[in-house]
């Protein structure tokens, strides 16, 4: 290396380091799904996470030390993240108010789009004006919801926090787990027909359609969504479709609550005669593994596959 090239190398190294330690900009979203440009001036050190899936993503990347608060955990946190989760204060069981969030002096807020509604934290532009970075989970504002959106999310979070290696490692592992499921179910000739969604009181069922993340996960697990258009079904609607399997997405905390919830459908005077109920093919799926799910997508795909084809798993 000549002196001249060494000099150029040193200068370039200096500037590249400067750029790395300096501002990081990225495209993200507001609460309505509109694109916004976000600039983060330094690696965030005081982070609020507003939803279970965003909290678990940060914890999975080992970022609990920079978290100053979490809120709105739909289901219990993943068991292997419990210790890290407990080390971060839960600031609210629902979305924190703007005033509460401000009082904690965050430099970064990560959550679903709904967290940035006017009655919760307020618009992302407000926080950007204060120099606070925001990151909205893509699947909470974009339609259709897709696993690709989660891959983009975790990649960018990895860059923002300087932990891209951990994000890449997680994705490689998740990819391997999902591919294993796909391989196993690839030989299945007739896919099980499934209605997947939320069971509401009095026999009403909110069936998730083709634009949901659960639909894509179901396809990977070898299932076929019986209602790709999605629907709000009355007991009559559910009986007319009469799927082979029903998956009930829930936001419950304990096994006994989940069992009682399943029983509501199983013991319904009309729905108890459904094929899925008679065959014992009604299964629960935590919201954390289905709707706007992040790092629990592989868990969800594996759980769905094991429900659909227990003989293979």
């Amino acid at each position: 290396m000549t002196n001249k090239t060494a000099f150029i190398f040193i200068i370039l190294s200096f500037f590249s380091t400067f750029a790395f330690a300096g501002a990081f900009s990225y495209r993200n979203y507001d609460s309505s799904g509109g694109e916004v440009a976000v600039v983060v001036n330094k690696t965030p050190e005081r982070v609020i996470s507003t939803n279970g899936s965003t909290t678990e993503l940060l914890l999975r990347l080992g970022l609990e030390n920079v978290m100053i608060g979490s809120s709105w955990q739909d289901n219990p946190v993943a068991p292997d993240l419990k210790t890290a989760y407990d080390s971060v204060p839960v600031i609210s069981d629902r979305y924190p108010s703007r005033e509460l969030a401000l009082s904690l002096e965050p430099d970064f807020i990560y959550g679903w789009g709904s967290a940035f509604n006017p009655q919760a934290l307020g618009d992302v532009a407000y926080w950007h004006g204060l120099g606070v970075g925001t990151f909205v989970n893509r699947n909470s504002v974009l339609s259709p919801q897709r696993i690709r959106n989660f891959v983009l999310d975790i990649g960018e979070i990895g860059k923002i926090f300087g932990v891209s290696d951990r994000a890449d490692a997680f994705l490689a592992q998740a990819d391997a787990r999902i591919n294993k499921v796909r391989e196993k179910v690839s030989a299945i000739e007739t896919r099980k027909s499934v209605i997947i969604g939320e069971y509401l009181p009095n026999g009403i069922f909110l069936a998730y359609g083709g634009s949901s993340l659960a639909d894509e996960m179901l396809a990977m697990a070898g299932g076929r969504n019986a209602l790709p258009s999605g629907a709000i079904l009355s007991p009559e609607g559910l009986a007319t479709n009469d799927p082979e399997v029903i998956v009930m997405i829930h936001m419950l905390k304990t096994d006994s609550e989940v069992a009682a919830h399943l029983d509501e459908l199983r013991k319904h005077p009309v729905l108890k005669n459904l094929k899925a109920v008679r065959d014992g093919r009604v299964y629960p799926l935590p919201m954390a593994e289905a709707h706007c799910a992040g790092v629990r997508i592989p868990d969800g795909v594996e759980r769905l596959a094991s429900h659909l084809y227990p003989e293979l798993f």
């Binding site: 600031i91 609210s92 069981d93 629902r94 979305y95 924190p96 108010s97 009655q119 919760a120």
Partner: peptide, 8 residues
Amino acid sequence: ARSAHPSE
């Protein structure tokens, strides 16, 4: 309203 609960 805003003092009684963290979410208001």
